[in-house]
Amino acid sequence: MRDIEYIKAFGINLKKLRTENKIAQEELANSSDIPISQIGRIERGEINTTISTVYALSKALKINVQELFNFNIEKKE
Rank of each mutant, 00 (worst) to 15 (best):
I51E: 09
Y6R: 15
R41K: 13
K16Y: 02
E67M: 03
R18I: 04
I7P: 02
I42T: 04
I23D: 12
E20D: 14
I51L: 11
K15Q: 05
A9K: 15
L68V: 02
Q38C: 08
F71K: 05
R41E: 04
F69D: 02
N48Q: 08
I42K: 07
T53G: 00
L14C: 03
P35V: 08
G45N: 05
G11S: 02
N64W: 06
S37Q: 12
A29V: 07
E67N: 07
K62V: 11
L68S: 07
S52M: 07
N13C: 01
P35F: 09
G11H: 01
S52H: 08
G11M: 02
A29G: 03
A9F: 01
I34C: 05
S52V: 09
I47E: 09
D33I: 05
E77P: 11
V65E: 03
A29W: 08
N64A: 12
S32N: 10
T19G: 03
N48H: 06
R2T: 15
L17Q: 00
D33F: 12
E74S: 07
I23N: 12
E43C: 00
D3E: 14
K75G: 14
Q38K: 07
R2P: 15
I39P: 01
V65H: 03
K8N: 03
E46P: 07
E20M: 08
A56V: 06
K15V: 02
N48Y: 09
N48K: 07
L17M: 05
K62G: 10
Y6I: 15
K16G: 00
R41C: 06
R2E: 15
K62E: 15
G11V: 01
I39A: 07
F71T: 06
I34A: 06
K62T: 10
I34E: 08
A29C: 05
L17K: 08
K62S: 14
N21K: 15
Y55K: 13
K16S: 06
M1Q: 15
A60L: 13
D33S: 09
A29P: 06
V54G: 06
T49W: 12
T19S: 08
E5T: 15
N64I: 07
S37Y: 05
N30E: 12
S37M: 09
I51N: 09
K15W: 01
F69C: 02
D33A: 10
I7S: 05
T49V: 08
A29E: 06
R41A: 04
I4F: 09
A24Q: 11
I36W: 05
V65R: 08
E5F: 14
L28E: 11
S32M: 13
R44E: 01
K75T: 13
N70E: 14
E43H: 00
R2D: 15
K15M: 02
D33T: 08
A24Y: 12
R41G: 00
K8D: 11
Q38W: 06
E46Y: 05
K75W: 13
N48S: 09
S58K: 06
E26M: 12
T49Y: 11
R2M: 15
